[in-house]
Structures are given as structure tokens and as C-alpha cells.
Write a protein that binds this DNA or RNA. Sequence first.
DNA 1: CAGATGACTCCCA
DNA 2: CTGGGAGCCATCT
Length: 132
Amino acid sequence: MNQQPNYALYDKIYTVCEQIPHGKVASYGDIAAIVGGGCDARTVGYALNEIPTDRAGVPWQRIIAKDGAISTRGLTQRQLLEAEGVEFDAHDRAIMARFRWDGPSADWAAEHGFQTLPPRDEGDRAEQMSLF
DNA sequence: CAGATGACTCCCA
DNA sequence: CTGGGAGCCATCT
């Protein structure tokens, strides 16, 4: 049709993104995992790239790559995050170990039909501890 | 329905 | 670090 097609799954993606608290970030894969239902990290990225004016309030800047790297088309996404208190290292990557969103609460997820973030590996957890 | 596109992620050299 | 290839998905032409 036009620039605002029949977003079914996209709408859910936007809803999840809006749950990310101020000063936190999440990866595409995380959002996909929360949305579930055949959603993929790519799908999340595509959805964020086509945010309709109706969803202009979606904090798209808080969705970054799994490594904390920003690969958005030259947008000043980093500045927006820094303004929220998110810190970056010398590698231009957000410190995911400290600012990564833990996912929605079990109540909220159940309430809206979403899922909580799956448990992480020991390695990632150890990384968080070491940074603290 | 097939082909193309796109803010991903993982693995290997 | 860079580059290539594969897998996965929604939406548009």
C-alpha cells in the first residue's frame, strides 16, 4: 500500500521497545526473543527502520547490536544514548554488560503476551561481574 | 508466488 | 580487524 502498511508484528516490536527504561539498551536479538512468535533480530531492525509517525515516541536509539556497536546509517545514535547516561568504551560500543536491559517483568510479559529474556551464559555473566 | 531489500547474528579464514 | 557466506524473517514490487 504505502508507507504505513499492515504492521502486525511490527506493532509488537515497537511496544517492547517502549518498555526499555531510560538509560538502558537492548540488542536486536533480545527484542526478537521477547516478542517471540517468529520474530528475528533482522525483523526488529527492519521494523525500527520503518517507524511510522504514529510510533514516533519509540526509543529506537536504545536498540543496538549485540556487541553494543552502533551500525545505524550514520545517525547520531550514540549521542542520544550518552544523553541518557549510557557510557561507551574506546571501541565505540555501549557497555552492554552494565546498561543492557534485563527484559520486561514477568507480569508485564504475561499481561501483553510477550516473553521474558532467556537466561544468559556464564561467560556473559562473568563479564558483567568483572566490569563491576 | 518469486525476487529484492534491509538498523542482524554467527562462523570461518 | 576485515571480508565472505549462510540462516532467519516481514514487507514491498
